[in-house]
Write a protein that binds this DNA or RNA. Structure first.
Lengths: 117, 117
DNA sequence: CCGGATCCTATCGGATACTG
DNA sequence: CAGTATCCGATAGGATCCGG
């Protein structure tokens, strides 16, 4: 029942949003988490499931996500280089946020993306 | 009931998220919308309510937000330069998303921001 | 297969000064 | 007051190649 109209957000709220943006900023991080949503994936599998991401960006983003405990990195075989990524309890909590993004875009994308994209 | 675990997101879902990120990316856009949450504001008022934003960035972001119909710009007096910004029906729909960001950060910020920030 | 190293460009974003 | 203009460094992001 809190629309933006009814509710004035506090300065604290703004800081919360800023914090979230800090962790989730950039084009790729949320998409990587999405890519892991249907199970663990290896480096190449993640890359294939995210259209235009380069190895460099994927590598960089995976590190940051791991540092922030949003994904987990497990090396299965040192010699064969068998690495698997999975999300954490912590990143699961992002599901409602992701749901809201999808909802919002679904109901509004026509209004914007016909002209912009 | 859909946690990330239970549900595998589709490629379409990924595109939706990408679209949302496209419109909301950067450090400032969501904060600007938040700043307008308790009523219309003038340029300087917005700037004062967002800690470290510069006039340049505010100006730039306002333009983009307006182009995407996420805010409305009304000039009240040509001579006195009296401009007011307000959000739109369209941006009101972002409220649930913002709520989720705040919720998420509230429950998890300690886990991250003690070390990172 | 998993990335790191390198080189490059484009955009982000800050500081400051300036205009109507 | 509401922005613009300019200069600048930092970061994002892409392309390609290389090594374990």
């Amino acid at each position: 029942m809190t629309t933006i109209c009814d509710k004035a957000y506090s300065e604290k709220d703004m800081m919360y949003v800023q914090d979230a943006l800090y962790v989730l900023s950039g084009k790729w991080k949320l998409l990587i988490i999405l890519a892991l949503s249907n199970g663990d994936k290896r480096f190449m599998e993640i890359q294939k499931s995210i259209p235009r991401i380069t190895t460099k960006m994927l590598s960089k983003e995976l590190k940051e996500l791991e540092a922030n405990k949003l994904i987990r990195r497990v090396v299965h075989d040192e010699n064969a280089v068998w690495v698997e990524y999975s999300f954490t309890e912590y990143s699961k909590a992002l599901a409602p946020l992701i749901e809201e993004m999808i909802k919002w875009t679904k109901s509004h994308r026509r209004e914007i993306f016909e002209k912009v994209a």
